[in-house]
């Protein structure tokens, strides 16, 4: 973050040429799709005129996007920024962390959330995420992310083979337990990797955050806001048992 007004350029950048071309494709696909919608004639018993057609607005938007994309391409070519060949390479360099962070979030959402108890999934996600970025030990980061992505991959393969167990069954609890054990095992292995006091202290912080956050969020959403969690398995069922036991006792 800077403490001065945002830097303003009016020349654009070499990548604008590629985004312009990509936008042209998007606009063309949008217009192509819109042309499949009823333009005139009768739809669902309603006589249609061109100005009531569901295609009208998408066609206008697609045309405007097309014009803007062409203008962007022309502006980029005429501005001479394309001669700045180093920019694209330097822009691509250093994107490793971006792919990694986006990958962690995407893997969590696509792989873990629909298939594992939310508290367990959240625990593993936070543990891997914080170990990778908070501890500042490359070996620990590799281990945490390796375990996280491998687990996600196994779950996706299982889903692909139709082996995802039905929620609130013994098989589903076994999967939750397996993921929990992998997460705990990853932490134990990561802790054994270093004797550095600062790194170990940070690992403790990671564990505390990973344990407390999903538990607190899970309890808040499930029992106070009455919002069901994406998948309720091993831990959520245990929490339910405790919650209703307490309520029954009161």
């Amino acid at each position: 973050m800077t403490t001065s007004p945002s830097h303003t350029t009016t020349r654009g950048r070499p990548s604008d040429l590629w985004t312009g071309l990509a936008l042209l494709l998007v606009a063309a696909a949008m217009a192509g799709g819109a042309l499949q919608f009823p333009l005139r004639g009768t739809y669902a018993g309603v006589k249609n005129a061109w100005y009531v057609s569901p295609a009208l607005f998408p066609l206008i938007v697609a045309t405007c996007l097309c014009l803007l994309a062409v203008t962007l391409i022309v502006t980029t070519v005429r501005s001479g920024v394309l001669a700045d060949r180093g920019s694209l390479a330097s822009a691509l360099a250093g994107q490793g962390d971006v792919v990694l962070i986006a990958g962690i979030i995407a893997a969590f959402v696509v792989g873990l959330v629909p298939r594992v108890d939310f508290v367990v999934a959240g625990f593993f996600f936070l543990l891997a995420f914080t170990l990778a970025f908070h501890v500042h030990e490359p070996r620990v980061a590799k281990l945490a992310l390796g375990a996280f992505f491998a687990t996600t991959l196994v779950l996706l393969v299982m889903a692909g083979l139709g082996l995802t167990p039905v929620v609130r069954t013994a098989a589903a609890s076994l999967v939750d337990l397996a993921v929990l054990l992998v997460a705990v095992g990853t932490f134990v292995a990561a802790r054994a990797m270093t004797t550095d006091a600062t790194a170990r202290h940070r690992m403790g912080q990671c564990l505390a955050v990973a344990l407390a956050t999903p538990l607190l969020l899970g309890i808040t959403f499930k029992f106070f806001l009455l919002v069901p969690l994406p998948r309720e398995g091993l831990v959520v069922v245990a929490l339910e048992t405790v919650y209703y036991a307490i309520r029954g006792a009161l």
Binding site: T8, G12, P54, C64
Partner: peptide, 28 residues
């Protein structure tokens, strides 16, 4: 922060996203 046209493109991309779903008049 850059070319003004990029702001307009962003706006029209938003409009394009808004087209997804059944339309309000014909439910298509």
């Amino acid at each position: 922060p850059d070319l003004v046209i990029k702001g307009w493109i962003a706006g029209f991309l938003g409009l394009a996203l808004a087209c997804i779903g059944r339309d309000k008049l014909m439910y298509y």
